[in-house]
Structure formats: C-alpha cells, structure tokens
Design a protein around this nucleic acid. Structure first.
Lengths: 104, 104
DNA sequence: CCAAATGTACGGCGATCGTCGTATAATCGA
DNA sequence: TCGATTATACGACGATCGCCGTACATTTGG
C-alpha cells in the first residue's frame, strides 16, 4: 500500500504556502530541488529529531509539495515540480529563488 | 508617529509565506493587488469581526507584505509590491496568479 | 460639543503547531 | 538469526494561531 498524496487538482494555495512557511521544510524543499535524484529523509542535514522530521515530511506530502515512495526501510522523497508548476505557475521557482537570499 | 514596517532587506521568506498562508489574508492581498489606490481596512468584504481583521492586517504588515498609513480615523493599506519583488522576485505575482485558481 | 465612524488594545477561548521522547515496525547486512 | 538502520506512531508539552467580545482612542460631521 502506497502513501497518500493529494491529486494535482486538489492542491490548495494556503496549504502549500503554509507548508513552505517553515525554515526546516524550506530546507527540505531546497535540498530536493538541488538534487538530481530522490533523497532519503535522513540525508538533508536537518538539525531536528527524527520524529520532528517525520512530521515535517508529512506536512509537505499532505500539502502536495513532495512525493514519497517507500524503498525498503527508507523513503525516497522528490519534489512535485510539475504538479506545482501546473497548479501554481511560477510559485515554486520564486520560492526556490528566494531561499538562498540571505547572503552576507 | 507612524506605523512600524520592516525594511526591505529585513523581509524573511518564512514570515512572508506564513502571512500569505491564510485565506482571509490572501483575500486582502488580492483586493489590494487589484486596486488602483490604497484601500481602507473596512472595504474588503471580509467576513470576520473588526478585531480579527486588525489582527490579520498586523500580520501582513509585520511580515512586510502591506504598508499602512494613517489617514484620519482610517488606515490606508497598500501592497509592498516593489519591495517584495526586489527581495523575492516573482513570488507575489505567482501567488496573485494562483489565488483565483479555484473555479468550478 | 456630541455622536457616529474607524480601527486598535487587551484578554480569553479552543485549535493547531513545532518539538521531543519513547516505543514500534520493517528491511538489510553480517 | 540478530543487530543495526530507517523511519513511523503515539502521546505529551509549551507556544502560537485565528477568532471573538468588550473597551478604548481618534477623527469627522452635525
């Protein structure tokens, strides 16, 4: 049995924006965006406990920002780029472009 | 004494996204975006009490999304378009483009 | 001057959020 | 088989959120 993900048409803006409004979740999204391949939960350098990380991944998945597939004991995460672009054109790119925007 | 607004350089993405993650606040932002001139708080058809509205306007102002100037007993609200575009290029447009995206 | 209008401040309410610890399930490697 | 690894589930905690009612401050108009 696979994991629950909202359909593209069911993505709602407030939920997506809320999912993106947490620094840790933004870090996850950025890590996925800069990766060629799906990433496991434990490989993103999050400075939080595993249970908290699980919570954040769930928020992102429930909002439709990421897609998760089980792979043994691990879980492979990927960005739902096309779905987000289809539903909210330009939004993801704008957020990703703004994330590293805290230079010296 | 005028109202407190964060400087453009002090705008932070999570706070802005959080401010935009509420339907009522999105409604305010959309109303301001589609208006040629600044709008008073009471002219946006919000189905909430005045004190709740005050709260939402404060969240938007603290995040740097809107600008408020006092005008007699009223308060004139405007979008900080240029500041947001400078700090987070494309973000506001993407959000505004996505807002009416819940048709039948 | 007084009343109406506009919006804020304060306090309270239930709900959600972010965090954690502990316990648990599932898979892989020795 | 057994232990290590990966991640979840559950319950708890304080903090914040969204909402409201009431009281208040300020300005405008009669």
């Amino acid at each position: 049995m696979s994991l629950q993900h909202p359909a593209t048409a069911d993505l709602v803006l407030p939920a997506v924006l809320h999912a993106l409004s947490d620094p840790h979740r933004l870090q996850i999204v950025q890590a996925l965006a800069t990766s060629e391949t799906p990433l496991r939960c434990g490989t993103m350098g999050l400075s939080i406990t595993k249970s908290t990380a699980t919570h954040h991944f769930r928020v992102l998945r429930d909002a439709g920002v990421i897609h998760q597939v089980e792979d043994g004991t691990a879980r492979l995460n990927s960005l739902r780029r096309e779905d987000l672009d289809a539903r909210f054109p330009g939004l993801l790119d704008a957020v990703l472009g703004a994330v590293p925007a805290v230079p010296a």
